[in-house]
Simulated scan of single mutants.
Amino acid sequence: MARQSPQRPDADEPELDDTDAAAAADEVEEDRPPADRALWEEVRIDPVEIALPSGTGFTLRAYRQARELTPTDVAERDQDDPFLARRQVVETEDDEEVVILDEEFAALSAEEDDEDEEKDAKARRKDKAGASDDEKAEAETEDDAEDEDDAEDEDEDDEAGDEEVPVFLTHKGRLLLFKTPESLVTFIRSGAPNDLSQLDSWNELSERLEPADIAPLDEDTYELDLVVENLRGGHDAWDHELLIEAGEIARDLAYALRLPAVLDMLSSGSSLDDLDEALRASVNGGVGGFLGRRRLKKIGAQTASLGWRTIVGKISAVVDWRD
């Protein structure tokens, strides 16, 4: 069968060049009403869109002070996947090596520390009772110094509690991703358990949210599925904005989902953190931008792509896809 020639436009209809077509598209965008952000600003929660190798989904993210949040419970997740359960090797009094979970090790260490502190306190009180005036004064000075150290530790804990940290729509250590706005809204209205329900604005969101409200801003849209391939393309092909945003969402997810391995890979001084700093410097322009581009040339593309493949894989492994 012979191929049919494409139909030509009628003589009376003017042809649109590329400029006219772009202008027409802009007019359509202008006519389209922007998503109402009032609800999100009131509840201090934002819709987020994340693209992973297995698909693209919508979820929610908020930032609150650490003291206001209960971290997601990862016990069931780690029990289901033994590779995620970090273990600690300790030696018993019989010189036997026993492998136990970190939480058990931490609890055991805490009990031993409490017992040692109590013994030390009793010893100090006993020594103080039979000591001379000078020795008592010296002991009191040491106690005052210890009290000051304890107060400083408490201040540091207070500062950590005041730090603003991310929290996502998660449940039992898994990120809930929804393929459509409708399915996300249905879940929120259902009253199903999740970690965002602890927020004081959650009930208001669940009562007022509509599918049309699930319209993430550009800065809340992340394409983790493109990161590894982009890094493999070499320094000249690197998309700086893509990679910087990937680092931001990966850090947030690693903290909220309690993924210590990912946090370590992106921590200060790591090779991927050096990549992030060089990317940020290079987009600033000026001398800093020039130095940033020089630093980028020294970062191995293969190493960076392998590291990010691991990060994307670990995040993907704790996603709970919802249709």
Rank of each mutant, 00 (worst) to 15 (best):
A2S: 07
Q7Y: 15
D10E: 11
D17S: 08
A22P: 14
D26N: 10
E29V: 13
R37E: 13
A38W: 01
E41Q: 08
E41S: 09
V43M: 14
D46Y: 07
P47A: 11
L52N: 10
S54Q: 14
S54V: 02
A62F: 03
A66N: 14
A66P: 01
E68Y: 05
T70F: 02
A75P: 06
D78W: 01
P82G: 00
F83N: 09
A85E: 03
E96S: 09
E96N: 07
E112H: 08
K126I: 03
D127R: 13
K128D: 07
D134E: 14
A139R: 15
A139N: 13
E140P: 01
E146T: 05
D147M: 08
E148G: 00
E152W: 06
A160T: 00
V165G: 00
F168N: 01
T170Q: 11
H171L: 01
H171R: 14
L175K: 13
P181E: 03
S183Q: 04
L184V: 06
R189T: 07
A192K: 10
P193V: 01
D195N: 14
L196G: 05
L205C: 04
S206C: 13
L226N: 12
V228R: 15
V228D: 10
E241A: 08
E245I: 04
L257V: 07
L263Y: 02
S267L: 01
S268Y: 07
G269M: 00
G269K: 08
D276C: 00
E277A: 15
L279D: 14
S282N: 02
S282K: 00
N284E: 14
G286S: 05
L291G: 02
L291D: 12
G292T: 15
K298L: 09
I299P: 00
G300F: 03
S305P: 06
I311F: 00
I311Q: 09
V312M: 02
V318S: 11
V318D: 15
